[in-house]
Structures are given as C-alpha cells and as structure tokens.
C-alpha cells in the first residue's frame, strides 16, 4: 500500500485553479523531490496532505486512511514559513513536541542542538533567522515519522547551512520512512533523490526514478527541469 495516495485532487480559490486533477502515489522508503517553479502548487499540495487545506474534489489517503489524527501522528512537517511560537524557549518547544507526538525523541533533539552550541533555555525570538530555521528542522527531524514533508527547506540559505540541512535530513530520517522535499533549487539536492515529481501550473508533469531519468535523457535532473520549464 502506498504511503500517500492522491486521487483526482483539485483545489481552487474562487476561479483561480491551483491544483488540477492530481493523481499521485508516494511509496515507502524513498526520498522524493517535489519539483516545480514558484507558484506551481507545491505548497498547496503539501498543505492538503497535512490537513491544512481542504480539497475541492478528490481524495487523499495516508496509510489508507483519510487525513486526520492518525495521519498527523505519522507525518512530520516543516512548513516553508516560521510556524512555532517564538515566545517559547527551545526547551519548551521540545517539551511541547514530546507532549503531543509519541514518536518524538527528545534525546535526538538535544544532541542536535548541542552540535549547534545552542542553549536550550534561549527563546527563539532572540535568535537569527537561520538559527530559528535550524531549530525548526531539528524539531521536525527528531520525530520517528513514516513521512517527512519538508517545504522549501533550503530556500534562501547559504551553502554551509544548506549542507547542514541536507546532512541533518540524511542522518536523522527514520529507517523505512519516506521524505518529500519540495524545492525549485534542484542541483543542490538532486543527488539525494530517489524519485522526482515535476509539478507545473497545478498538474503533475513528470514523475520517475531519478537515475532512470538521468539515463534516459542523458542529463541531470536540474537540466531536465530547465528544459521542461523553459519560459
């Protein structure tokens, strides 16, 4: 059974159609790139899978069940924007996560924080933007989830931070779990992807195994992307 199955998912705001008939299966144990230019519908699709948006039609199943408490238990989600209460200290946030998520591992979180030389008693609003993002990533990756959904985790960061983020993802994702990484910066992450999903103007444009695509097209995923999405 697919981890996530989207069947005919449509989403529009008024007359503005964001997602058009998305059919998709996310298998277990894969790192998947959700690739598309800005405004192609990546974030909308991700928010639907996380239960933050309602579909207009179509169904989304996670482990065969509709989006709800059970799907939220197994999905660890990093939104593209800051989403925790910045009045809380890192320690409070860790307690918050471990109170609500059975699969949250505080030890992992503290170990990762130690590497950043962060004082757990510091409040988030005293930290730099980059540090806040790292803390949020640590919280998300410290869960032993079935599916990690990371929305633009490397958007607008410097190369050192990018390496830190990719390292943290690769080191900490749960065995047998899948990871969905949405991005428009493909060359930075393509070597860690098993599969890619190209999304364009709200429709799935191309899906496939990353290495097979490289073989059949003789190009890097980034080049294929540039080719397909040429303006």
């Amino acid at each position: 059974m697919a981890l996530v199955k989207c069947d005919g998912v449509c989403k529009s705001y008024g007359k503005n159609s964001i997602l058009k008939n998305i059919n998709l299966e996310i298998p277990k144990g894969k790192i998947i790139g959700l690739l598309g230019p800005n405004g192609s519908g990546k974030t909308t699709l991700i928010k639907i899978i996380n239960g933050l948006l309602e579909t207009n039609s179509g169904t989304v199943l996670v482990n065969g069940e509709k989006i709800g408490i059970n799907s939220k238990k197994v999905i660890s989600y990093l939104p593209e924007r800051p989403y925790v209460n910045f009045n809380m200290s890192v320690k409070e946030l860790i307690n918050y996560f471990s109170d609500f998520y059975d699969n949250f591992d505080s030890d992992t979180a503290y170990k990762l924080l130690e590497k950043l030389n962060l004082n757990p008693n510091d409040k988030l609003n005293t930290m730099s933007k980059g540090m806040k993002e790292k803390v949020q990533l640590i919280l998300v990756m410290s869960r032993k989830a079935d599916l990690y959904i990371l929305d633009e985790p490397i958007g607008g960061v410097d190369p050192a931070t990018r390496d830190y983020i990719l390292d943290t993802i690769l080191t900490n994702f749960n065995d047998g779990a899948s990871v969905i990484i949405s991005t428009h910066l493909i060359s930075d992450i393509e070597k860690i992807l098993d599969e890619v999903i190209f999304i364009k103007e709200g429709s799935i444009y191309l899906t496939g195994d990353a290495d097979e695509l490289r073989t059949s097209k003789g190009m890097s995923i980034d080049e294929i992307f540039r080719e397909e999405f040429k303006c």
């Binding site: 070597k191 290495d211 097979e212 073989t215 890097s220």
Partner: peptide
C-alpha cells in the same frame, strides 16, 4: 564527487 548528469548509482 558526482556528475549530476549520470546516474548516481553507477558513479
């Protein structure tokens, strides 16, 4: 180090 235009697995 890898070339992105050849399968990573082969490299």
């Amino acid at each position: 180090e890898f070339d992105n235009d050849r399968p990573i697995y082969i490299q």
